[in-house]
Computed example of a mutant assay.
Amino acid sequence: MNRAKWIWLASLGLIYAGLWIWYGGNGDPISEDEGLEMLAEVERLHGVRLEDTPEGSMTRNLRDMLPNDDGKEFYAVNLETRAEGPEALEAEAKYAAIVMPLLLERGGHPVFLSERAGLMLGKYGENVDRVAVVRYRSLRDLIDMIADEKMVEGNAFKTASLAHTEVFITRPTITFVQVRLMVGMFLALLAIAGLAVIGRIQRRRGDVPAT
Rank of each mutant, 00 (worst) to 15 (best):
M151W: 11
I98N: 03
M100A: 04
G107H: 06
Y95M: 03
G85P: 08
R135N: 05
E84A: 14
S138Y: 12
L119C: 05
F74M: 08
N127F: 13
E73T: 01
E73F: 15
R140G: 07
V133H: 00
V128T: 13
E90G: 00
A83Q: 13
S138A: 14
L142W: 11
G125N: 10
M151Q: 12
L142A: 13
E126I: 14
L79A: 01
V111I: 14
V77K: 05
A83D: 12
R135H: 14
L119M: 15
P110R: 03
A91Y: 03
F74I: 05
R82D: 04
P101E: 03
E115V: 09
V111A: 11
I98S: 00
Y75K: 13
E80Q: 11
L142Y: 15
L113S: 10
K123V: 10
I143Q: 04
L121R: 09
G108A: 07
G122R: 10
P86G: 08
L104A: 15
L139W: 13
P101T: 02
E80I: 09
A83Y: 07
T81W: 03
M120R: 01
E84W: 04
V131F: 08
I143T: 01
L103E: 05
D148E: 13
V131Q: 04
V134M: 05
G125I: 02
A96W: 03
A88D: 10
I98F: 03
E90T: 05
A88Y: 08
E73A: 15
